[in-house]
Design a binder for these strands. Structure first.
Length: 366
DNA sequence: GTATGCTTTCGGC
DNA sequence: TTACGGCCGAAAGCATAC
C-alpha cells in the first residue's frame, strides 16, 4: 500500500565525539578527564576547549572554555589535554556514517558527529520497530567502532533533535506521535530550533516561557508579532509540527578560514601577510571543492573579544584568488579605519556555486 | 506596511 | 586573578522594492 504513512525520523548524535575518538586510540585515558583543545599560535596554552569527556565535564569543563581555565579546574586531577586531530576524527566519522546510512531510507549528514535518517519505510511507521532498529544501530556502532551514540526517534526532525539530546550519553529517547505534545509542553521555548535569544526575550515580554504557553497563541497574533513566515513556524513548531524532509544532499553554503594573530595588531600593514595567507588557503579550499563564490567577508575579533565583520556581494560570481584577496583587503581597510586592536582575523566566502553545477547556474544568469 | 534579499551578529559544537 | 579556536549555519538587523 502506498498510502500516507507515519513518518519515523531519527536524529543521531555521537557522544563527546572528539574526546571519545581519543579514548579509542588510547584506552588508558578513558578513566581520566580528557580535554581536546584547539591551541592558537600564541603558545602558553592559549586556545579553547573543543570537547571534553564526561570525567572532565564533572569539573565544569565544557566546549568553548579557555584551555587555561580548564587546566585550572582540573589542576588536582590526572587530566589529559590533547590537540584536535580532525583527520583522525573524520576517518572514524566516515565509518560510522556509512553504518548509519546502511540502515536508512534517507540519510542526511549534518556534521562530523550528527545525522538525521528517515526510516519510515523500514519501520513501516511503527515506533516499536523503530526502537528495535535504533538499538540495532547503537549496537552495531558499538560493536564495529566501540563508539557510543545517542538517538532521538520522533515523527519529525524538530522533535527527533530535541529527543537525541534528552538523555545523554548513550541515550535513546522515543517520542511517539501521541506523546509529542506532552514531551515538549514544559520545555522552554528556546528548545525549538529557530528560537534564539531575541525571539525568546520578545516572548518573555508577552509572558510566554514554555512551549505549551506558546501553543496557546493563535496564528494571527504570531504572524502579527513575528511576520508571516516566522509566525507560522512558531505556531507549528509549538505543536510539535515540522514537515522538513530528511535531505540526502545538503549543500555547503560557506567556507571560512580564521587564525589568531601571533600578537595583537592595530595596523593593517602588519596584517597583510596574514590576510594573504588566509585568502590563499581559503582559495585552495574553494578550488578543491569545485566552487565559485558571490560573496566575500572579513571577520575580525578584537582584543576585548568583540567581533567586527564586513561582507560584500559581487556583481558576478568569481573563483579567482585575486578577486578574493582584493575584496578582502578593501573590507579589512574599512574595518581597520579607526585602528581597533585585533586579536584574530578571518576570511569567508558564501553564496557558493558549484562550478560543475547545472541548475545552480541558471539563477545567476541575469 | 510587507516581503524579500543582503549584511552583520549570534551561538553550537 | 586572568585566562579565549575555528569552523559552520541560523538569527537578527537593515535596506530596498513594491
Amino acid at each position: 500500500m502506498n498510502s500516507i504513512k507515519k513518518r519515523v525520523i531519527m536524529h543521531i548524535d555521537f557522544d563527546y565525539f572528539y574526546a571519545q575518538c581519543e579514548e579509542l586510540r588510547n584506552t588508558s585515558i578513558k578513566d581520566k578527564p580528557v580535554v581536546v583543545c584547539v591551541y592558537s599560535a600564541r603558545g602558553n596554552d592559549a586556545g579553547a576547549v573543543s570537547t571534553a569527556n564526561y570525567n572532565a565535564r564533572r569539573y565544569g569543563v565544557k566546549s568553548g572554555m579557555p584551555i587555561r581555565f580548564a587546566k585550572q579546574r582540573l589542576k588536582y586531577t590526572n587530566a589529559i589535554f590533547l590537540p584536535v586531530d580532525h583527520a583522525y576524527y573524520d576517518e572514524i566519522s566516515n565509518k560510522a556514517m556509512e553504518i548509519i546510512r546502511s540502515f536508512a531510507d534517507k540519510f542526511e549528514y549534518v556534521g562530523d558527529d550528527e545525522a538525521y535518517i528517515d526510516v519510515s519505510n523500514t519501520t513501516n511507521g511503527d515506533f516499536d520497530k523503530a526502537r528495535e532498529l535504533a538499538l540495532i544501530i547503537k549496537n552495531e556502532i558499538r560493536r564495529v567502532l566501540h563508539l557510543s551514540i545517542s538517538i532521538g526517534v520522533a515523527p519529525n526532525k524538530l522533535i527527533a533533535k530535541i529527543a537525541s539530546g534528552y538523555q545523554k550519553p548513550d541515550g535513546l529517547t522515543i517520542v511517539k506521535p501521541s506523546e509529542v505534545n506532552n514531551f515538549i509542553a514544559d520545555m522552554n521555548v528556546d528548545a525549538i530550533v529557530g528560537i534564539g535569544k531575541k525571539t525568546r526575550e520578545r516572548l518573555i515580554e508577552m509572558n510566554i516561557r514554555t512551549i505549551k504557553e506558546l501553543a496557546k497563541l493563535d496564528v494571527y497574533t504570531l504572524m502579527n508579532e513575528f511576520g508571516r513566515k516566522n509566525g507560522i513556524y512558531l505556531y507549528n513548531s509549538s505543536r510539535g509540527i515540522d514537515e522538513e524532509e530528511v535531505k540526502e544532499e545538503q549543500t555547503v553554503t560557506q567556507f571560512s578560514k580564521i587564525i589568531t594573530l601571533k600578537e595583537d595588531k592595530n595596523d593593517i600593514n602588519y596584517m597583510i601577510n596574514d590576510l594573504n595567507y588566509l585568502t590563499n588557503e581559503l582559495h585552495k579550499i574553494i578550488v578543491n571543492n569545485g566552487y565559485s563564490f558571490r560573496n566575500v567577508g572579513v571577520i575580525v575579533v578584537l582584543n576585548d573579544l568583540n567581533i567586527r565583520s564586513k561582507s560584500k556581494s559581487l556583481k558576478r560570481i568569481s573563483n579567482s584568488n585575486e578577486d578574493l584577496y582584493n575584496i578582502a583587503k578593501t573590507l579589512l581597510e574599512d574595518i581597520m579605519s579607526d585602528k581597533p586592536i585585533v586579536r584574530r582575523l578571518g576570511v569567508k566566502v558564501s553564496e557558493l556555486v558549484s562550478s560543475k553545477g547545472q541548475d545552480t547556474l541558471l539563477k545567476f544568469i541575469r
